[in-house]
Design a protein around this nucleic acid. Structure first.
Lengths: 337, 337
DNA sequence: CCTTGACCGCGAACCGGTTCGACAAAAGCG
DNA sequence: CGCTTTTGTCGAACCGGTTCGCGGTCAAGG
């Protein structure tokens, strides 16, 4: 069921079939129809490997995801979904590659051997081996998140530092003096995970500029950790009346712990942060937060990647988004002493 | 940077390089080392398209997921993660294809053109076009879930009917007479979504066999819907003292509504069901439920697919899992009248 | 010394598309 | 009518691997 078979049955040459399909040279309407009839009859589809071999491109992009054994966070899932969506829209296929853990083989396989035309990387560390590896190979790539020194790379990210700063200012304006940062896990901070670092950066910056009393905590990405985190906070730092967080997965636990301690939000305690919209709206009361525009980010990543594939020598673009903070119901004036 | 270049620099023929790499014919240790040195120096990787073209297989499998625009449920995410994991383990790549909605082009592209060696399909409907399409093409495939008439197809599924029956029996044994089924959304039921139908089947069967009083409800896959569902249930059917559910995403809402109505679980109301472990353990009190073994199912699906690819003419296997129901804390004796 | 066979390596064909130069027939033009 | 241009099709080369048949080399055995 190859192009030769079609050509024989239609009584033309293989090249004519090819031209009829791609339209790169004119073919008489009549022959075109004869060819199409044979194709329909045999349900013929050109072999993707053969085409890729000759054309030198695969019309496929790689998407490197965190090791699948870890449960993906909602935000990561949002990126994956939007990248897949945007790629489908551009008639591209998406090859998935789990990375990290013992999956380096998979990563290696996807980026080498010309299996993909470009790669989208997520969960970027400040120093990221995969980024340097990709730079060496010369394969076009775009990262969601950015490294400590992102010059010359193409990326799209949320400006965590600015957003967390704004949250702190907002709380300070409401009269809060003791504010805690509930960051991502200690492991992620130690590993140099970008969002965690930049959140910390934005937090300490805002705290010093306003002369406030800042407490920073790390917290694993799950509800249980959120609970113990709040318990610890209330015990060790009773002076703290508000918190900002970038740890959306901890939110349900945070809520539970506050309820159990009979702390009413926002009367007794205010909380704000950065989270996917869905987490903010599921919080009770709904969370004042910057909604991470995962959909837009994934779509932009694909768009940037396509530009990069089309013109690899072009100077690298990037996109640093600062979505507005949606005022919902979880922040209020500091409680009177 | 092709095999010819390597051959030239190592002073051997292209075929020798190929044999040195694949090991399909003996090559002297000495030449092998010389070749390897050149390969390391140039960081050469064989072109995947060329290899696929000649070998007639791509070492890639397709994974058809629900349209990415919908938020994937935790269970679906679990399947994706475990399939990717298992595939990576078998040195296979995974090509993602969103299906449904306006994504038929993507599906078509992935299954035709010999882009993949086989396909794993999830979110199967009782009558599923994609399954008949795949049967026509002759491409090996395995489904997670099964159609109404699954003979001759390869699949792995959870026995929802039996599990829900068992839940009902368990509750009946505890003295409950009025039991509700909180099913998936009305749309899914209408669309012939397998698990929703089979849950209903198992429920009504068990209810009639025990001569109980059954109420069936549909509920969208989110917390808010779970809340209104419980509210409606308590209003319209006060005689109901227990519920079984296959709607894990509704659980947080169910919990919230029960708490707000001051209904203590399991003293006043019992609840059991089928859910991914994580949802059951996050419920308060922890949910008595059959834990859907998403990891095992994804791995089995890959395994079955590999068998099928190796021996397409072999009679089709399937795997119907009935995981044990984990007794946790959400079921207890029916309240006294 | 010649034969035998194991062992290595080479050259060529092949997988299934795309693409380029060539060429015949038809069309346009003076 | 002869000449150029256009149009539609063909044959062959190419992409970068794998694979098969062939042959040269060398050690063992008669």
């Amino acid at each position: 069921m190859n192009i030769g078979e079609i050509a024989r049955r239609a009584g033309v040459s293989r090249s004519t079939v090819s031209y009829a399909l791609t339209g790169k040279r004119p073919v008489t309407e009549q022959t075109k129809q004869r060819i199409q009839a044979v194709i329909d009859e045999l349900d013929y589809r050109p072999n993707a490997a053969a085409r890729a071999l000759k054309e030198g491109r695969t019309r496929t992009i790689g998407l490197v995801i965190p090791p699948a054994s870890l449960r993906l966070t909602d935000m990561q899932l949002g990126f994956v979904a939007s990248v897949v969506e945007a790629a489908a829209h551009a008639d591209l296929d998406v090859l998935l590659s789990p990375s990290g853990g013992d999956h380096d083989r998979s990563f290696e396989r996807v980026i080498s051997g010309r299996r993909v035309d470009g790669v989208i990387l997520m969960e970027i560390r400040l120093e990221d081996d995969r980024v340097t590896r990709l730079q060496r190979t010369g394969l076009p790539f775009v990262t969601i998140g950015h490294t400590a020194n992102p010059h010359g790379t193409c990326w799209v990210d949320v400006d965590y530092a600015t957003l967390i700063s704004r949250c702190v200012y907002h709380l300070a304006d409401l009269g809060h003096r003791g504010i805690a940062l509930i960051n991502r896990s200690a492991e992620l901070v130690a590993a140099g995970y970008g969002p965690a670092h930049r959140a910390l950066e934005g937090f300490t910056g805002a705290i010093t500029r306003r002369g406030l009393d800042g407490v920073t905590l790390t917290c694993a990405d799950d509800a249980a950790a959120g609970e113990t985190c709040i318990e610890r906070l209330r015990e060790d730092h009773p002076e703290v009346t508000a918190a900002v967080t970038v740890n959306e997965a901890a939110l349900p636990g945070i809520q539970r712990a506050l309820e159990r301690a009979n702390v009413t939000v926002p009367r007794d305690f205010s909380i704000a942060g950065v989270a996917a919209r869905h987490w903010a709206e599921d919080f009770r009361p709904q969370l004042t937060a910057a909604d991470v525009p995962t959909f837009e980010m994934g779509a932009s990543a694909v768009e940037l990647l396509l530009e990069r594939i089309a013109a690899p020598e072009t100077p690298a673009h990037h996109l640093l988004l600062t979505p507005p903070i949606s005022l919902r119901a979880s922040t209020g004036p500091a409680p009177a002493r």
